[in-house]
Design a protein around this nucleic acid. Structure first.
Lengths: 336, 336
DNA sequence: TTTATTTACGTAAACGTTTACGGAATAATA
DNA sequence: TATTATTCCGTAAACGTTTACGTAAATAAA
């Protein structure tokens, strides 16, 4: 309850509320002396306009929503960093929602946001079956920009990274350093993001004349304990000499599993992962990563959302692709 | 612009808007048949009440703000995770603001939030000089809960960790493992959080009969390059045999500096840091950490804010202290 | 039966802005 | 001088809810 409002300012200045409102918005209809008087008093009294009254009347909220699977995640927290900075420049407010990879929660958030609470949505999809029709409806009612976790079948503006090329190059790198039996830790497989990464893996194998063995593909499980068990089991039984992990959360268990199994990275097993771990350099051994430009993705996604909001964007179905960086470190080093 | 509103529902059902509103809010004044009719149509049409109209009329927003220095930070992203979960249970919305350690930005955010945009604020203060009077004014207008980065001179509910004991025990641990010249990487020194950590360091030195040398205390600088230079310089010139870092961001440069200086952790220098790095275990060497219960701090802080909002909290000046955990790893191992 | 109470709903005002419309005073033009 | 345009401001309605107040009908109490 902001104590002081436009009516009080108006009364104090012997003006109408309309004039005060216009003065505050720097309308051409108001004389500069009046504007000055209004501004002065507003500042003196620390007047802040009631955002809800304003939003109700103007039918816009100066607020955007960010819907992501998890916030405690290097990639997403960096992306939000970028989003928040852009929003702040524009005097917009940022609402955060976590889906914890649940499609149900995701849908419920979106439903509630259709009430006009936000002017637009930035979303990185939860993995799991996507309801295309549903999301199509949403895009018709509210500007939506998808980032990183996208789905080709859903129309909309998308910001992604070069997932296919990144995975392809990663596998190529493993092969060049001597790997012949390369496992893939699979995640996001319902999304284009995950499919592209997997396809890059497949194609790199094929182009190098390596067989494509289903047993080398390990699905991400329900929780981290299960993941660890699967991965350890996989390494022990299949004895891969290289692993590409499609997400950071599946790469870490490899370290623990190898320690447990008395295997040396990179001598027995080379490891590379999509990861935005800031200090991958300091791991033992340091981890070769495919580093996504998370902050830039956030900046780009938010920037485009604002262009859409200002009707300065006319490509409702464009996908913008930023490049990830392969950072070679000890975990994929060739034997000397 | 939510297409469909209460008036439409009312018209469709031959009811007044008031009745529809009351039915949706499950008022006792409405018959169960009418409620059922209203609910059915609302569901069928995917009706979502306009939050701004509602907030304007009821003078509450169902929204809270979280103001933090940085979101791309292990501690803060985990804390927000906790906050968001609690907010979701209560059907509240969470606005995020980053101060980047700027007191100016922090103040400007708070100012704008006094407009009634949020029902309460969760804040972890930026380091730098605190304007006590200013924040006192804020607390009078809006419920505020401080977490982790707090200041004793500011009245309010606070959630912190046992910073003093944690630092004390960390130094004790270093001493027990043979350190005699322990450096301290200082940050947050304008806040109680930082002061308590520093005091714990001092007292542990004193209680063990070690001298308190100003040269062993390194101030956090303007940016990470500067920090790295200072720290490397410090290690090279002062040759400490142990370091306690008050924040994670200052511990990582130690790794790089030691590599550069050809020093071995822990043999030449033992390192321990306040840190919420998830995989400190995997560093080379693994890092002994003081792990703060970040998620729980978020949960606790949000929980108390909601108690305040529901007037179920009557201790406007209470400080709740959660315990951090000292996790001993290789970086502080004694010589064998 | 009469009066009091309860039930179930409608009317209208209010929340604090913004803005379409109008109009008086002044300045510009014919 | 008469007319038109411009400048500057006020009135009132609107945004979509919620709620104080009122009331007719149904029920209970006397």
């Amino acid at each position: 309850m902001g104590e002081i409002n436009i009516k009080m300012l108006a009364h104090e200045l012997n003006l109408s509320a309309a004039t005060v409102s216009r003065a505050l918005r720097d309308s051409y209809e108001i004389s500069s002396e009046t504007k000055a008087r209004v501004l002065e008093l507003a500042k003196k009294l620390n007047y802040e306009p009631n955002p809800y009254a304003s939003s109700l009347r103007r039918q816009k909220s100066k607020t955007i929503a960010v819907i992501i699977p998890e916030i405690a995640n290097n990639f997403f927290s960096q992306a939000i960093n970028g989003i928040e900075e852009v929003a702040r420049e524009r005097d917009y407010h940022v609402l955060i929602y976590q889906t914890h990879e649940s499609r149900e929660i995701e849908t419920s958030f979106i439903m509630r946001l259709l009430s006009g609470r936000v002017d637009g949505i930035l979303i990185s999809l939860a993995s799991g079956a996507v309801d295309k029709e549903y999301l199509k409806n949403v895009s018709e009612k509210l500007p939506v920009v998808f980032f990183d976790r996208v789905h080709d079948d859903i129309e909309g503006v998308k910001i992604t990274t070069d997932d296919y090329e990144s995975a392809y190059n990663a596998v190529q790198h493993l092969i060049e350093n001597g790997c012949k039996k390369i496992g893939y830790l699979l995640a996001l497989n319902t999304l284009s993001t995950g499919k592209n990464r997997l396809q890059g893996y497949f194609d790199a194998l094929k182009d190098n004349g390596l067989p494509n063995d289903q047993k080398l593909i390990i699905m991400s499980g329900a929780n981290s304990d299960e993941n660890y068990a699967h991965i350890k089991n996989f390494i022990a039984e299949q004895t891969p000499d290289g692993i590409l992990s499609s997400i950071e959360a599946l790469a870490m268990p490899c370290y623990y599993a190898c320690k447990e199994l008395n295997l040396n990275i990179p001598n027995d097993l080379k490891l590379i992962s999509f990861s935005n771990l800031e200090h991958a350099q300091l791991l033992n051994p340091s981890l070769t990563t495919i580093n996504q430009p998370a902050f830039e993705i956030g900046v780009e996604a938010a920037g485009i959302l604002f262009k859409v909001l200002n009707k300065r964007w006319y490509e409702p179905n464009e996908t913008i692709i930023l490049k990830s960086t392969l950072i070679k470190r000890e975990s994929t080093m060739a034997l000397i």
